[in-house]
Design a protein around this nucleic acid. Structure first.
Lengths: 237, 237
DNA sequence: TGTACATCAGTGAACGCGCGTTCACTGATGTAC
DNA sequence: TGTACATCAGTGAACGCGCGTTCACTGATGTAC
């Protein structure tokens, strides 16, 4: 979903054809990278995993990608731009993770749990990215790719409603009109799985897991919470 | 809970006595502040609210407090030190918020909702601090005050269990031995309220609130989620 | 009661570092004619 | 098919800034005798 322009993946191949032998390939570094935006995002993710969110500077990303330090600025404008694109990529991958799990279940009543497992699975495999994605204040919220990716993730999450998706949205909203009880149910499901994911990636459950008999890892605690806890809507007594 | 040493609040009073008239007070700034650690933490919170987490540097805090830029280092060591103390203060205040709400309810079955309301109340009144508190990787986790404050918050949260608190902890653990189902229930309750709080302070629920009929603010969505959604433990079908 | 001294609290100059930003530039590509 | 030109992609030097850190220092307090 990043850089759908025509400069996508065609040009590096062409460049490689010109420099046929391996030695030439190494020596003759083409001036035009061809798919630098994607390469920069990959580099950014390496930096993120290695140095954490605070290590994500334009210069660090450029170093990792092996290009001059002004190249990222040229493509993304500023740090918030890169972080936004990185997060957008994360939201799309999160959506895919959720959709994969949801597709696998037959029984619609099992779909909420499947979605939760997809969410947690993503968080477990991409803890740093998950953390970055929850740092909304670091992004440029106007970025179309980020808006679109968040909407996609929102719709994937709304799959908790089974086969009846919410009404189609108008304008830049994720959802169309929705009655209150449905919005509350979605809020609850979202908060629950979001909370589990963040507590897990932040290591906040480690102490509790250590105290709990029969539980070895925080992972087990989270999976048990998904498997065994029901969220049901209804007026308080 | 911060700086319980004898240098607490006595000395500024004494200093003020020496410089009796207002003019003198302004002119004669005593060399020894007397309670600089507390003043620095207050300054840090001002900076946090004004400039966000990324604005929290030792120098910015010193500027806000009106002292030399090496003074914070002298008391807290490094940035992680200040952030840890600030977060510890936050956890203590969160605990107090929870305890206040829990104390007010008569019916033990209503306690979980009361605790959740206390948690959300704190988050609503201190959104930046709440965000900071969830940035575990920025802290010095070994700080005794932070460990103690987190334990206090954990115990306040464990009040969801009603009048039967968990077994007393040994060593530096928050909880003593606990059976698995109880740990899972605590995980679920914690994740739920934590997720609600973070989604709220990060503004992530604003779009959903706008789409929901009869809901005006994200706050309403969160309060409805607390009031209307039940978490119940039991094996999945 | 006084004196000497150790310790604590806070200052301010200086330093090196990594950062984002600007700017004039070069290399490569695409397109109009 | 060729040529000219506009545009895009990426470079590298230079700049100013805020940061944390070090260091020698001064002011104030507490304590031993």
């Amino acid at each position: 979903m990043i850089d759908k322009s025509e400069s996508g993946l065609a040009q590096p191949t062409r460049a490689r054809k010109r420099a046929a032998t391996p030695t030439e390939k190494e020596q003759h570094k083409p001036y035009h990278h061809g798919s630098l935006p994607q390469a920069l995002l990959q580099a950014a993710e390496v930096v993120l995993k290695r140095d954490g969110i605070s290590g994500l500077s334009l210069r660090a990303i450029a170093r990792q990608a092996g290009v001059s330090h002004t190249a990222p600025q040229h493509h993304f404008g500023d740090t918030a731009g890169v972080l936004s694109e990185l997060a957008a990529d994360g939201f799309m991958r999160l959506s895919a993770c959720i959709a994969n799990r949801a597709r696998d279940v037959q029984d619609a009543s099992e779909r909420p749990r499947a979605i939760a497992r997809g969410y947690i699975e993503f968080a477990k495999h991409n803890p740093d990215l998950m953390r970055l994605m929850s740092r909304g204040e670091m992004f440029d919220s106007e970025r179309p790719s980020l808006i679109e990716a968040r909407r996609t993730a929102g719709l994937a999450l709304a799959g908790v409603f089974g086969d009846a998706p919410p009404a189609p949205p108008s304008g830049k909203h994720t959802f169309g009109p929705m009655d209150a009880s449905r919005a509350v149910a979605l809020t609850a499901a979202w908060a629950y799985v979001h909370g589990l994911a963040l507590l897990l990636v932040d290591g906040r459950l480690d102490g509790l897991a250590a105290s709990a008999e029969g539980i070895r890892h925080a992972d087990d605690l989270v999976m048990a919470a998904i498997d065994q806890v029901q969220l049901s809507i209804g007026q308080a007594s």
